[in-house]
Design a protein around this nucleic acid. Structure first.
Length: 183
DNA sequence: TGCACGATGAAC
DNA sequence: TTCATCGTGCAC
């Protein structure tokens, strides 16, 4: 298992979103690694992308998006669900990849299809917001054997307010995988 | 200081 | 299709 390095995240966001598919997200909780295979992602390109949180500028919530790549941006949505993002591109660019669904690999608590459920199953909440993905508790690895996959593209979910950005095909998932979220 | 609204999920 | 539930950002 090879942990992804900083250079992996310090690239254009669409490439990172595509190549994250098939990688393993690992969160070590009380010494136990919770592991899920990433099967669905969405790219949020930066302040010019009206669907991205960073489109409203630098705020206390979004400041990790403006920080260096390879960090976790975790926020609360609808007052009850956490969503996990990976910060991409150079510091100040404010782009990120939302992880939308995982296929269970080890020690997950319950289902993990959908950004809210995934965070429950992985025990990810705002306590890990800003965590460095090159650290020892939350990180992403390339599995020893990476199966060949076909990548499908769709519009992102729940961003109808973002005008023409809502139509962009910035959601990626493993074609045919049963753990991709519905909708 | 107040308020409208989500990058959602589950029940009905 | 409706509702639970609350942090965030912006209007006033």
């Amino acid at each position: 298992m090879q942990k992804l390095d900083r250079a992996f995240y310090d690239r254009d966001t669409v490439s990172v979103a595509r190549e994250l598919l098939g990688k393993h997200l690992v969160h070590v909780v009380d010494g136990t690694p919770r592991i899920g295979r990433i099967v669905e992602t969405e790219a949020y390109l930066g302040p010019h992308d009206l669907a991205a949180h960073s489109a409203r500028g630098l705020t206390p919530r979004t400041q990790v998006m403006f920080g260096p790549p390879g960090h976790a941006y975790v926020y609360l949505i609808y007052g009850m669900y956490s969503c996990m993002n990976v910060v991409t591109e150079r510091e100040g660019h404010a782009a990120a990849v939302l992880i939308r669904a995982l296929e269970p690999v080890a020690n997950l608590a319950g289902r993990s299809q959908g950004p809210g459920l995934l965070c429950n199953a992985m025990a990810i909440d705002r306590a890990v917001n800003g965590a460095d993905l090159l650290g020892e508790t939350l990180f992403i690895v390339a599995p020893a054997v990476e199966s060949r996959i076909r990548i499908a593209r769709r519009p992102r979910v729940g961003v109808d307010y973002a005008k023409h950005w809502a139509k962009r095909l910035l959601r990626f998932y493993v074609s045919g995988n049963a753990f991709v979220s519905k909708k």
